[in-house]
Amino acid sequence: MPILEVKNLVKSFGKTEVLKGIDFSIEKGDVLSIIGSSGSGKTTLLRCLNFLEFAENGTIAINDKVIYDGSEKAKMSEQYIREMRLHFGLVFQSFNLFPQYNVLKNITLAPMLLKTDTPENIEKHALELLEKVGLSDKLSSYPCELSGGQQQRVAIARALALSPDILCFDEPTSALDPELTGEVLKVIKQLAEHDTTMIIVTHEMNFAREVSDKVIFMDEGVIAEQGTAKELFENPKNERTATFINTITK
C-alpha cells in the first residue's frame, strides 16, 4: 500500500495549464526525486501537495484514504485544510525561517501552538532534531546570524518537528552557495537512511541519483518518465529525458 497516491492532478493559473494530469505514488520510507527544467510544474506539484495551491482536479490519497479531491475543494473547511497540511512537511528554497525567533523557538513555535505534546516534550524533541541536523550549539542563535546552509538545516528540523508523513523539499540547495550545499544534502541523505519518506524537487542530479528510490522527470506539466534512479539516469526511454539529463550532467 503506497503511503501517498496522486491521481490525475490538474492545476491551471488563469489559462495556463501547469499540471496536466499527474499520477504517481510513493511507498513509505522511499525517496522520490522530481527533476525537470524550470517551468515544467515541479514546484507547483509540490505546492499542491502542501495545499499552498489547490488542484482543480484529481485526488491525493494518504494510506489509501483520499484526503483531497479537487472537484470538492469548495466543501473543505479551513480547519480541514490545516489538518491535511500536517500530513506533509515542506522545506522551502528560501528557508523562510522566522527572523524574530531564535533557532529553538523557530522549531517549537508550531508544535506549541498546535499543542501536539507537552511543552517539555516538544522542547526535548526539538533538541533531538537540532542534534540530528548538527546544530545543537546554535539553539539560541537568530536566523540572521546563521549561514544559508545552517538556516536550511534549521528549516529541515522545523519541518520534522511536526512529524509529517512525507517531507517535501523545494529545491533545498538552489539558494545556497556551492560550498554550502553539501551540508544540507548530507542531512537529507541521513534522513533517507533513516527511512524518512521524502519528495525532493532538485537540480542536483548526482544527489538525486544517489539518494532516490524513484525519480520522476517532468516536462511541460506532465510526467514524461518515471522509474528507479538507475533506469532514468542510465537508460532513459523518453527522448526528452535523455536530452535533459545529457545537458544537465555535462
Binding site: 502542501n50 495545499f51 499552498l52 479551513e78 490545516r82 489538518e83 497540511r85 500536517l86 506533509f88 512537511g89 515542506l90 522551502f92 528560501s94 523562510n96 525561517l97 522566522f98 527572523p99 524574530q100 513555535l109 508550531a110 501552538l113 498546535l114 522545523r158 519541518a159 511536526l162
Partner: peptide, 30 residues
C-alpha cells in the same frame, strides 16, 4: 512582508490569526 513567511506558517498548520500575531506582526512592527 515576504509571502514565504505566511506560507511557512501555513505548512506548519497554523491558523490565519496565529500566523498574523505570532509571525507577521513583530516583523511589521520593526
Amino acid at each position: 512582508i515576504a509571502k514565504g513567511q505566511y506560507e511557512a506558517g501555513q505548512v506548519l498548520g497554523m491558523t490565519k490569526s496565529q500566523i498574523f500575531f505570532k509571525i507577521i506582526l513583530m516583523q511589521v512592527v520593526k
